[in-house]
Simulated scan of single mutants.
Amino acid sequence: MTWILTNSARAFDLLNPRAENVLTTDIAHALSLVCRFNGHCAWHYSVAQHSLLVAYIIEKEGGTPEEQLAGLLHDAAEAYITDVTRPLKLLLLEAARQRENVWLTLVEQYASESGMRNVVSIRAAAMRILTTTEREGISLLLDVYQQIEQRIWLAIAERFHLAPELPDCVHRADMIALSTEKRDLLPEHPTPWECLEGYAPLAERILKMQPEIVRQQFHDRLLGLMAVTHRRRAAA
C-alpha cells in the first residue's frame, strides 16, 4: 500500500502522485492541523499559518501574485507526508552520502587489488548498482523521503502552474518567517541558529489562531491568488 486517504476521500499515491488528485481543500485542511517544530512551540502553530506568513512577507516586499502563490504552497507537500525536522533531514542526507562513498571506495580497492585497469568502468558499474530502482525510480540507497517529497511537489506545481524551482524570494521569506517564529513561539536558548544569520524577524508578532480560522484563511488566500494568476495566464 503506497497511498494515503485524504480528507476528501481520495486515494493519493505517494509513489505516483497526480496533479488531478491535488485538491485545495485537502491542502488547506491538512496544513491547518500539521504543527510546526514537531509541536515544540508555545501553541498549535500550523504549517498553514506559517505559509500564510511567508506569502504575506513576499507580498510586503513587492512580490508578484505568482511568487506569493509559490510562497503559500512551498510546504504543500507536507499535507501528504508531513515533514522531517531539519537536523534529522541533514543527518539522513549525510548518511546516504557516506554510505555511497564507502561503497565506491570498496569497489575501487577491489579493482586495484584484482589488477583491473579500468577503475572508471567499475565506478560506473557501482553507481548503476547504487541507483537500482524500485517502483518507478525510487532509489534504494538515497534519501527516499526527499525523492517522494519532490514527486509530490512536482504534482502540486503542475496543479497550480508553478515552476518546479521556487523563486529566491520564497526562500528569503521562509527564513524571515522562521526568524519571527523562533522569537515568538520557541523557548529562549543561548545557541544561535546559523541558518538565520542575516535574517531579521518581522516587527509584527505572530498571533495565536484556531486551526479552523487558519484553514479558511489559507483556502481563501489560495483561491484568491489562483484567480489572479489564472487571469494573467489567460491574458498572456
Rank of each mutant, 00 (worst) to 15 (best):
L130W: 15
L93Y: 03
I81W: 05
Y56D: 11
L222Y: 00
A163W: 00
L91R: 12
H74A: 04
P164S: 12
K182H: 14
W193D: 15
P17H: 11
Q109D: 12
L154S: 08
E134W: 03
A235V: 07
M1E: 00
R231M: 06
T82A: 13
L5Q: 14
V120Q: 14
I27G: 06
G39K: 03
L73W: 08
G137Q: 09
A203R: 06
E20Y: 00
E134L: 11
A42E: 09
R172F: 03
R86V: 07
D168S: 12
H171G: 14
A42S: 11
T180G: 12
A124K: 14
A173D: 03
L14D: 06
G115I: 10
G137T: 09
L178C: 13
A19F: 01
Y145P: 10
Y80R: 11
G198C: 08
I57D: 00
L72Q: 07
A9R: 12
H74W: 09
L154D: 07
S114H: 04
A11Q: 15
V214M: 01
G39N: 04
N101V: 05
A28T: 07
L14T: 05
A11W: 04
T2I: 05
S121P: 01
A200F: 01
L69A: 04
A28E: 06
R231F: 03
